[in-house]
Design a protein around this nucleic acid. Structure first.
Ligand code: SF4
Ligand code: SF4
Lengths: 144, 144
DNA sequence: GCGTAATCAGATATTATTGTCTTAATTATA
DNA sequence: TATAATTAAGACAATAATATCTGATTACGC
């Protein structure tokens, strides 16, 4: 069980975070990403395609091609990535899986849960990835 | 995407909550559960079996048989159910899906995330289902 | 121009999850 | 004791998620 986000989405988050740590203007190839992150090559390829189509990344084909952020890192949040890959229905849904239920006749956990959902949302939008990159310590992420 | 818990687990939570609302000592059949909750009959059957094997429910075969809680409602929390169905690895895992990473060299969201995980855990253990049943308003859950 | 390195795109394969069906075992009750 | 209702169990089917493969396309560098 992957928690909250699909595996695809996790990979996407990791990849974008990695890109954010590379010097501005450089391209990073899928191959590079795949070895650094240890995720399956072709699968990541598809994910990068999605992110590119959504306009979060730009890609360059051909020799010495690769991917880079399409926007300044300070204009991207984790939310954008989750939105592009998994969608953001979770902001509305019930943890217990009850359909058509939200707040009128609340069950005993609704308040707690509604707050939690808010927290997840906060976590996703609070920091842009420029800030995140600055604060991230993972040495294996730095350009070698 | 089902949020946090698998669909199985959601059904399990719903079913146990329903059972908690039935008068103590009565048995509820799968058929009854399935129509009240609107979930697939046989699938639910299997889930009930699991919960029974784990000792959370007791079952009675035969005519006028069914399921009931195996423990007093005040001794059961949502955590027990999640534990039985999905497992509780999520209490340790990283939202971003990074393996082998937890707190040393924390990334920029680790603190927020760790708190969030704690909140989810809290939500699951805070109330026992006796309290929840008392506070739950869902009229379609009451015995007719 | 040509060869190489890279992404792009789509087809396919594998695995996990969800759902269905069928039969057997069990029990209350008529 | 026969019958009907019910869970138990396992086989099967459908769907969704994850992963891999292959060929095409593009761009760079020689
Ligand atoms: S009231 Fe309870 S069941 Fe309804 S949406 Fe809120 S948490 Fe879910
Ligand atoms: S530091 Fe960041 S990447 Fe590591 S476990 Fe915590 S949240 Fe996940």
């Amino acid at each position: 069980m992957s928690i909250i986000f699909s595996r695809q989405c996790e990979y996407a988050l990791q990849a974008v975070l990695y890109l954010a740590l590379q010097p501005r203007g450089t391209l990073t190839s899928s191959k590079d990403l795949t070895t650094r992150l240890g995720v399956p090559y072709h699968f990541l390829g598809k994910i990068m395609q999605s992110l590119t189509r959504k306009g979060l990344l730009r890609s360059q084909k051909g020799s010495s091609g690769g991917f880079a952020l399409a926007l300044p890192p300070k204009d991207i949040t984790l939310f954008h990535i989750v939105e592009a890959i998994d969608g953001v229905d979770f902001t509305k849904k019930c943890v217990l899986g009850f359909p058509e239920c939200s707040g009128k006749n609340p069950c005993a956990v609704h308040h707690q849960w509604a707050g939690l959902r808010e927290n997840i949302y906060e976590m996703l939008v609070r920091k842009n990835i420029a800030e995140m990159a600055k604060e991230t310590k993972k040495p294996e992420f730095r350009a070698r």
